[in-house]
Structure formats: C-alpha cells, structure tokens
Design a protein around this nucleic acid. Sequence first.
DNA 1: TTGTGTTTTATTGCCTCC
DNA 2: GGAGGCAATAAAACACAA
Length: 209
Amino acid sequence: MANMSQVEEEMLFYSQMPEAGGEIKRTTTRRRRKKKAKEAEGEGEGRKRRLSDAQVKFLEMNFGEERKLESGRKVHLAAEVGLDPKQVAVWFQNRRARWKNKQLEEEYLKLKNQQDASLLDKCHLQVQVLKLKQQLSEAEDEIKRLSACGNEGLIGGVGGGGEGGSPSSSSATNAYQPALGAEGGDGMIMDGYEYNAFGNYLMDWDYLL
DNA sequence: TTGTGTTTTATTGCCTCC
DNA sequence: GGAGGCAATAAAACACAA
C-alpha cells in the first residue's frame, strides 16, 4: 500500500473487516479501540462498528450535496466508501434525523429570542401605560383647577366653545399633544431603548415583522 | 479504573407511495 | 406487496470527571 492515501487506506481497512463475529470489549479511548480493532482483525468484530473519519467525511460531503438517497446513488456511494449499501442507507437516515433535530433546535432558539424580546417590550409598554395614566390624571386635575378658576372669574359669563360637560378637554389634549408626536424631536435613548420627550417608550415594531 | 452521560450505529414497526 | 422514509428505541462506542 505504498501509494495509498490515508483515506484510501482506512477505507480499505474497514471494507475488509468481517461483518460479524465476537464482541469487542468496551474500551476507554479511541486509540485503545483502534488497537483492539486491529487485534480483532481476522478473528471477527462486534456487530456495531464506528465508521472511520474518512468514511464519515465522505458521507457528510455527499449528504451536503443531497440529503435524500436514491437506490443507484446508495449503491454507488457504498462501493466508493467501502460499506454495505444498507449501512449507507442507515447512516443517511440517522444523519437526516440529526439534521432535523438541529433545525428544530435553531427554530426553538429563534422563537425563544423573539418571545424574550416581546416580553421586554411588554414590560416597557406597561411602564408607559402607567406613565400615561399618571399624565392623564394630572391633566384631569389641571382641567378641574382651570375650570374652577374660570367659573370663579366668569360666573354668569361666556361658556366658551366647550361641548357637553367637558369644555376644556380640547385644551388639555392640546397641552399634551406634543407628547404623541414627539418622535425624533426631544427624544432620548436609554439602555438601548428610545423614549420621546416625555419619557415614553417608543417601541420598535420592525423586529416583529 | 469506574460510573455516567452523550453520540453513533443499527433495529423495529408503522406509514406512504407507486 | 415491496421500497423507502420516519420515529422510537436499543445498544455499542466514546468522553470525561472523580
């Protein structure tokens, strides 16, 4: 075997292994296992055998090209790698299962990250709701105060432009209107989150799309 | 060296497709 | 009905801490 590459040598080594035989005793290292395997050569080996690195590399390469294995390709690959076609089929089957698991794991992580981000946003939105409620409460107090002042000064006077029982609701809205459209104006960024001039959290909806 | 958890190879049983 | 795929599982091989 003077002109053989290591890959070819390994393929030949494994292709010449007898299919069934005595049990290989459990060993603690790959090196010992290899030694045992060499010792077992000629006297048979255990029914389960690890594929060589070269064989795995070869199969991985082919799996990368096409994950499914039609009959002709299976026979061809088996001959090339020095394995039984059944072993190649089993390897592809197991490899597909591992690939699927990995895909699922990645999908899970992706969804989990999205969920975490959503929870964080929910938290910020809840804070914002509290702040807005506080602002609303303050605005209502202010309305009452102004309304009381107006009544004091204008007893029997003009009922200026209000509608129904809340004549000054529009003035209150005007007073706080800038808060609703203040993006980019006096806003600020804190801890990586954007807030408007009134400290209200500005949610980034883009990541949800 | 051993116990234990993980990975890899192989088997089994069921399902679908032709 | 046979071939091939998949899920579940067994069991050998392996890695590694103690």
